[in-house]
Design a protein around this nucleic acid. Structure first.
Length: 666
DNA sequence: GCAAGGTC
């Protein structure tokens, strides 16, 4: 009988797959680690026949890359030496029991069957497993399973069709690891050593001034928005408003041109309207409209929605989702997939929610014929399904944060399985003095998914009276109004996550950590949006010294939006306090401005370099580049930035002086 | 005293 060692990326996958293949497989404990189990059972593989199987797992990466000891001490070498200092890869201290477990199991097996997630990092983790197993037993055959979810039929299919590890993907990840280590360490030490002594010290703690290929672009987004707010100059504009009364209803017509920045032009146009006296209806339409139900839930969307509606930071959202997952209430919370597999039994999941007091009745209505297959988004990571509730849990069993996140996940899921909201849109267009104006009305006919999903708002506007084309009307009121453009607001957490996502900064699992890191490093401050007031709420830096600079926000006209006219079908997002917004500290601004002033064409604060690295990783995966070429080329490019920065370190110091040391003298 | 990526 063949002896097969299967290894998954995480315990939950080992358990699920083992149970599909082996029935209620026996679970043995592993020395020195509680959450990893070895499942033992027999299984008849298509390729290897009746076999004795041990199914275990790792917990993410097992090994770490570090510099040789001499280079780990900050005083042991120049930071610039880290570009080519020798490195080694070794088992992380806390992963020792996991590695030992694999080694001892491998010694007694003939075949290694790797079941890590089918993504780039999963491929790399698989290669680490392979390395450890082969060291213990060089004669092993090594195979890999291709699977994208843990549905029974899919898993059995994967068990019968093993493939090979993709070494190109392994190389791509290993290039990333080396670059992140070398660049992170080199720039962090250089910056810290050069600038730390200029920083005002509190409580004798010397803070690291770190650089990382993700944290810097993240900071860059915050600073960029901050500067746009600060440099904002409101601009006045003018527009024409027309009101007509019919059937006792005041109908507000908005100008098709929105607004103009030329006052004289508006005066002339307005006079033409006034002298025309009478307006004419040119177009009416009444047509069905819909508000689409949301897409299946991805990690990025969960974090955006969580920081927007649940009053949690993205880090807390992730921590909470993680806890709900390990307790078995929701599915795996790190996924890019926004489409449910056709074969998945969604009704079974809905059924379990029927007992709830809040959304139970809605779940029942879905079970009684209201069910609709969820929409399909465009993403499928082929590793995990969208986030969904797995089992029902009563609110009393959860803490505050868990309750909120669980509720959101359930409501989102039920909404996905429901129906689009249906409404009727009425549009009326008039011509007045040669200008076009229009009015828009919405009547919600069937709320459908909105009943279970309060995070979306779509409400009927005032009914419009009946108009017919050609009808003449005399406005009750027409006036020329003035407004001014209002400043953008500081970057909110959901906006930042969206920017990171769009620019490929971090992964769904790490974006919240990068945000946490730039807070931790005191590059940015977070505060609740709208809670501006208070003493120095606007102040930057941990040292209590504000920027002393203008508060760019001009009074919010609010009119800009009103004049903008044709919005999409319905009302906008729900108003809700509690969103976090980020303001850079003096240190954060100084770092970004300092690097910008060093004037290299590719500033470290821009997302460009990270994006470029992503493109090169793809090239390695597709065999168009080699790992070595990519690493060397990137090191050369960053080394040039490094040299230039150290030569012009006074530019960086000047920025620190300007913003941190003497913030009020500029 | 450095990074970012997995996961518990």
């Amino acid at each position: 009988m063949a002896r097969i060692l299967c290894v998954a990326e995480k315990p939950s996958i080992a358990k699920a797959v083992a149970n599909h293949l082996g029935g209620q497989a026996r679970a043995d404990n592993v020395r020195g680690i509680q959450w990893v189990k070895n499942y033992k059972f027999d299984y008849n593989f298509q390729s290897w026949g009746q076999s004795s199987v041990t199914f275990t797992s790792v917990a993410g990466h097992i090994q770490n890359m570090e510099f040789h000891t001499r280079y780990q001490k900050w005083t042991g070498c120049q930071p610039s030496e880290l570009f080519d200092a020798p490195t080694e890869v070794f088992v992380a201290k806390d992963k020792k029991p996991i590695a030992d477990n694999i080694a001892s199991l491998a010694a007694h097996a003939t075949i290694l069957f790797i079941w890590t997630d089918c993504d780039r990092e999963g491929e790399h983790i698989g290669s680490q497993v392979r390395e450890i197993a082969l060291k213990a037993n060089p004669n092993m055959q090594v195979w890999r399973a291709r699977f994208s979810n843990i549905e029974r039929a899919h898993i059995i299919q994967a068990a019968g069709n093993p493939i090979r590890l993709d070494d190109a993907q392994v190389s791509a990840v290993s290039a990333r690891i080396e670059l992140d280590l070398r660049l992170g360490a080199a720039f962090t030490r250089m910056q810290t050593l050069a600038l730390q002594n200029m920083m005002p010290q509190r409580d004798d703690v010397k803070k690291v001034i770190s650089y990382g290929s993700c944290q810097f672009p993240t900071l860059g987004f915050v600073v960029d928005r901050y500067l746009r707010v600060r440099n904002f100059v409101p601009e006045p504009f003018w527009y024409i408003k027309v009101v007509h009364e019919k059937d006792g209803i005041n109908v507000k017509f908005t100008w098709r041109r929105g607004h103009l920045f030329d006052r004289m032009a508006v005066i002339i146009i307005f006079e033409r309207c006034v002298s025309a006296k009478v307006a004419k209806v040119t177009k009416t339409s009444k047509k069905p409209t819909k508000k689409w139900k949301p897409l299946p839930l991805t990690t990025v969307e969960l974090q955006k929605m969580g920081s927007k509606f649940l009053r949690l930071t993205s880090q807390d959202v992730m921590k909470t989702a993680e806890a709900l997952y390990t307790k078995g209430w929701i599915s795996y919370p790190r996924t890019e997939t926004d489409q449910f597999d056709r074969g998945m039994d969604l009704r079974k999941l809905i059924e379990r929610q029927q007992q709830d007091g809040r959304w139970g009745p809605f779940a029942q209505s879905l079970m009684n014929g209201g069910f609709n297959q969820p929409r399909n988004g465009r993403n499928n990571d082929k590793a995990h399904p969208p986030i969904h509730p797995v089992n029902y849990v009563a609110p009393t069993q959860l803490n505050d944060n868990e309750r909120r996140v669980y509720e959101f996940v359930v409501r989102r899921f039920l909404a996905c399985c429901s129906e689009d909201a249906v409404g009727e849109a009425t549009d009326v267009e008039i011509e007045y003095g040669g200008e076009n104006f229009h009015a828009h009305g919405l009547t919600v006919i069937a709320r459908n998914y909105l009943d279970v999903y309060p995070y979306d708002k779509w409400e009927s506007s005032q009914n419009l009276p009946q108009y017919t084309v050609g009808e003449q009307l005399e406005p009750k009121e027409s006036s020329m109004e003035e407004g001014k453009t209002s400043a953008p607001s500081y970057l909110t957490e959901p906006e930042l996550i969206a920017l990171m996502d769009a620019n490929g900064i971090g992964t769904d699992a790490t974006m919240a950590d990068h945000i946490g890191k730039i807070k931790d490093r005191e590059y940015v401050m977070a505060r609740v949006k709208g809670a501006a007031g208070g003493n120095g709420g606007d102040s930057a830096g941990g040292n209590g010294r504000g920027r002393g600079r203008g508060r760019g926000r001009a009074g919010r006209g609010g009119r800009e939006g009103a004049a903008a006219g044709h919005g999409e079908g319905g009302a906008g997002g729900a108003a809700n306090g509690g969103v976090q917004e980020f303001i850079p500290t003096t240190l954060g601004i100084a770092l970004i401005e300092g690097y910008d002033n060093v004037g290299f064409e590719t500033s470290l604060s821009k997302p460009f370099l990270r994006k470029e690295m992503e493109v090169q990783m793809k090239a390695i995966c597709e065999g168009r580049s080699s790992r070595n070429d990519v690493v060397q080329q990137n090191l050369d490019q960053y080394r040039a930035v490094f040299i230039r920065t150290t030569q012009q370190i006074n530019v960086l110091k000047a920025a620190i002086t300007k913003y941190v040391v003497q913030p009020n003298q500029n």
